[in-house]
Simulated assay, not measured.
Amino acid sequence: MKTYCSAILGLFVITYGTAGAATSLDTKLRTDGTQLREAFGVVAGEVAKACTVNIWSGAKFTGLGTVVSKDGIVVAKNSEIDTANPGALRIVGPGKRISRARVLTRDISHDLIFLDLGREVDPGFEWGKTEDITHGTWVVAGVAGSALSGPSVRGGVCSALKREIKKAGGVIGVILGGRDGKEFGGVEVSEVASGGPAEKAGLKKGDIIFSINGDEFFERSKMIEKVKSFDPGTAINVSVKRADEELEIEITLGYRNLVFSELKSRNDKMSGKVSVRRTGFKRIIQHEILLGPSDMGGPLFDLEGRLIGVNIAKANRVEFFAIPAEEIQKLLKAKASEIAEARGEN
């Protein structure tokens, strides 16, 4: 394996040695170029093919999954799948075999869904450790490949220490106006986002919100903080005044980056499509391997081909997050009884 690592580093010596003589780097020498992808393929190409699967909902490709046990448990990114019809989920792989995907359980805090492949399979990897991972540590990600070649890999480096990503919280999908206070009777809705949760639930411009889940709020800032304390996908009861009526409206909170897409930061606008959920993770590995949202759920390896994480979010064009392997192993133990019950083993 040291030979493989030396080969990768050797390519970079060539890369940087020739870069000074050119105004731009030859595409085949970039981290997603052919030469480096071939080198990373030597490190983790075969193990990626053994444990990386494609997940489909009907005719729609929803993303990748990683086989994490020999009895066929697959983990994937829940927020990319949670609206899919469970009966329509299919898993392609390992190899070209197609299997019906049965939902075993979910873990919302890590944004993971656990699926049953329905057969035993050798995922091909050993579990790695992330305690020594730091800035500049080389890592390799499994990515979706072509129908003929199957999954492939890309490499890059860790760009931050393991850390928590704070939760952004869900949104109703409204702009709260200038009028609020106890004397006014609540907080006025000045705008309703088109196609957002509030519009779908029937909230209207000019409505006065005075209660969230039975708790009264008369200040705009406190009401916003209350809503942000709930995760996207949570249903809340909103009490509003409309003319002479008082109404109770149930609203299922949405993701900020989807509901208010027109308010994206400059960095987000440059990032293209990002993950539906990209915040609220207790512990992540951050790297800079160029991945798309549909590559989430796929594996992350070290240069020994050991599984060190599962990719969980494209945050923007330069930040990509993975759940550490140790967290995945803890979840497998914590969810063992739920998985057994879903399989009818209890």
Rank of each mutant, 00 (worst) to 15 (best):
M1T: 12
G10L: 07
F12N: 13
D32T: 14
L36M: 15
R37K: 15
A44K: 01
V47P: 03
V47A: 13
V53S: 01
S57L: 00
K60N: 13
T62F: 08
V67G: 08
V67H: 06
G72M: 02
V74K: 00
K77M: 01
N85A: 11
V92N: 07
R102P: 07
V121N: 11
D132L: 11
I133N: 01
G136S: 06
W138P: 01
S149L: 11
G155F: 01
S159K: 04
R163H: 14
G170C: 04
G177P: 03
G181A: 05
E183R: 15
E183S: 13
F184Q: 00
E191W: 05
A193Y: 02
G196Y: 05
S211M: 04
F217V: 09
E225N: 13
F230P: 08
A235H: 03
N237C: 15
S239T: 11
V240D: 12
V259P: 03
F260S: 10
K273T: 07
V276N: 00
T279K: 05
T279D: 07
G280M: 00
Q286D: 02
E288F: 00
G292H: 07
P293K: 02
M296Q: 03
E304P: 11
G305E: 06
V310G: 06
V310I: 13
I312C: 08
R317P: 02
A325H: 02
E326F: 09
E327M: 13
E327H: 10
I328W: 05
L332D: 00
E338H: 15
A342T: 08
R343Y: 14
